[in-house]
Write a protein that binds this DNA or RNA. Structure first.
Lengths: 216, 216
DNA sequence: TAGATTGTTAATCGATTAACAATC
DNA sequence: TAGATTGTTAATCGATTAACAATC
């Protein structure tokens, strides 16, 4: 029982790179490649070959010494690892600019995520459909989440409302939340939260620029 | 000249936490606090007090032993460090769903970023204004970027077009790029690139959920 | 067989935490 | 003064890289 090591906490950084490997593999498949190697994968992403192999080793053995990796096979393996072989019904709470964009965003469907409901407090938005997805009143959040068996939530409400929404999602049985509101959420018990703050991404960039300009 | 240490590469993780400190400080200011401490800041974000102090130490001394930090003072210091005391004219390339959302997103303005132009290849979109911002033809990218002294670009075009857009932005003098297209960009010489992939964020979440369900 | 490439162990490197003298 | 909290050094911990036997 000390065999496979996926029980001892995999570092967040490793999981992030797994997603990147998956993306490159899908690209390679599209371009007709059958096999690849840790060297090639590393090169495409700017990592060492050792790192690619070490990362994969967290989850098992997927390669063939002397050959490399079968793209197709490794792709399915990583999808299974990340859980994207399953279907993930997603709800979006907050139909402002960002929420609306996410509703129309194609990229999710490919990876097993399907947005099946949206919520808003503004009664003028409620009842309609955006990009084919029904917009419900936030008052019905618990009911609809349960009925549609929604597993993930994306929070695109104003900062002040985010914590409360997170708690309501958690209480309704949602298992994970991507929070786009620019606040740190107190994680409701037994739920996973990932934060995405667009302003912070831009700040990382401005720092990189000014610090390069300073002493290159 | 070995005095302040901001010349030796600051780890990306540290810079990211600086943004988080800034966000919390702004929150504290809004709630009327004058001073804070490494312990409080750490608690709000789930870090140790030692980490907060160590992170800040990369850039200088900002605190008062026995007192803590003046919120206002530390806020300005971090803004200066991140470069968000300056004004950053931003362009958005690709006015699809995501691009449109970013055009309307409020959160940027607060932090020194102002979207001043948008570009698209679709001639039916060109010439109009969205959220008050002019949409130009992608053919005029170089011209407008120079004219408006645009420093940062956000790429929200389809994956296949992203690399080419990045190169054109770089050639026009843009200093940094946030890439929302789900591809790894080859960084044009002398430019900073930050990647944001919404599908990857969701994958991090699904992994967290499935791995929690597996062996908690 | 020779060449390529894996998985894994050991060595290196870097980041986080603990501890504490200095300071208010 | 006593209590609080900094900045910084040393100790710990974890992640990355290098190296190599095993394998195809």
């Amino acid at each position: 029982m000390v065999e496979t090591s996926q029980d001892d906490q995999v570092p967040k950084a490793v999981v992030n790179r797994m997603s990147l490997y998956l993306r490159e593999l899908q690209q390679l498949l599209r371009s007709g490649r059958n096999t690849t190697s840790s060297t090639q994968l590393g090169q495409l992403l700017g990592f060492t070959d050792a790192q690619v192999r070490k990362d994969l080793a967290h989850f098992g053995q997927f390669g063939y010494p002397g050959i490399g990796y079968h793209c197709e096979e490794l792709t399915s393996a990583i999808r299974r690892i990340l859980g994207t072989d399953q279907d993930w019904p997603v709800a979006i709470v907050g139909v402002g600019n960002l929420g609306r964009a996410l509703l129309g965003y194609q990229g999710f469907g490919h990876q097993g995520f399907s947005v099946v409901a949206a919520f808003d407090a503004d009664s003028t938005k409620v009842g309609g459909r955006i990009e084919g997805i029904a917009v419900y009143s936030i008052d019905d959040l618990e009911k609809i989440v349960r009925r549609e068996r929604i597993r993930l939530g994306m929070i695109t409400v104003p900062a002040g409302a985010a914590q409360q929404v997170a708690e309501r999602l958690a209480r309704s049985g949602v298992e994970g939340i991507v929070n786009f509101a620019p606040v740190t959420l107190v994680e409701p018990a037994g739920i996973c939260v990932v934060g995405v703050d667009l302003a912070i991404e831009l700040e990382q960039l401005s720092f990189a620029v000014v610090s390069r300009n300073k002493k290159p």
